[in-house]
Simulated assay, not measured.
Amino acid sequence: MAEKVFAGVTVNVTEDGYLTDPNQWTKEIAVEIAKEEGIELTDKHFEVINFIREKTLNGESLTIRTIGKSGIVDTKGFYQLFPGAPLKKATKIAGVAKPSSCV
């Protein structure tokens, strides 16, 4: 397990860079992780991130389809917000575990 410093806070991360403790997450940390992923966060990003945190911290598993049906953003919009690997990037920025559906 590695440590990384985001927004002046040392956090534990997996080898893929996901926080090991979602309770260490802050919006400031999210902004720095997003910068590493080449994403500048907007209010819409945070709506999706908050949805992801709420669902995963309640023990629900997420898919791209789940997020597309959230009412926050459709699937195409999700890909636009988090280009390339939207679920991987969004969960990483949200400070939750990497979904099992992501390789």
Rank of each mutant, 00 (worst) to 15 (best):
M1H: 13
A2P: 11
E3S: 12
E3A: 05
E3R: 10
K4M: 11
F6P: 03
V13E: 13
T14G: 14
T14S: 15
G17T: 10
Y18S: 06
L19C: 08
T20W: 00
D21P: 02
P22N: 13
P22C: 12
P22I: 11
N23S: 14
Q24A: 15
E28Y: 10
E28A: 15
I29T: 08
A30V: 08
E32Y: 02
E32S: 04
I33T: 08
A34G: 06
A34I: 02
A34P: 01
K35I: 09
I39E: 00
I39V: 10
E40Q: 09
T42K: 02
D43Y: 01
K44F: 07
F46D: 06
N50P: 00
N50L: 09
E54K: 14
L57Q: 15
N58A: 11
E60Y: 14
E60H: 13
S61A: 07
S61G: 00
L62G: 01
L62A: 02
I64V: 14
I64C: 07
R65S: 13
R65V: 12
K69N: 15
G71S: 11
G71E: 07
I72F: 06
V73F: 05
D74I: 04
T75V: 13
G77R: 03
Q80M: 10
Q80K: 14
L81T: 08
P83I: 10
A85H: 08
A85M: 03
P86F: 01
L87Y: 09
L87Q: 09
K89Q: 05
K89V: 10
A90R: 01
T91C: 15
K92Y: 01
K92P: 06
I93S: 01
A94Q: 01
V96T: 07
K98S: 08
P99C: 12
P99E: 04
P99S: 10
S101F: 04
S101P: 08
S101C: 15
C102W: 08
C102F: 07
V103G: 13
V103I: 08
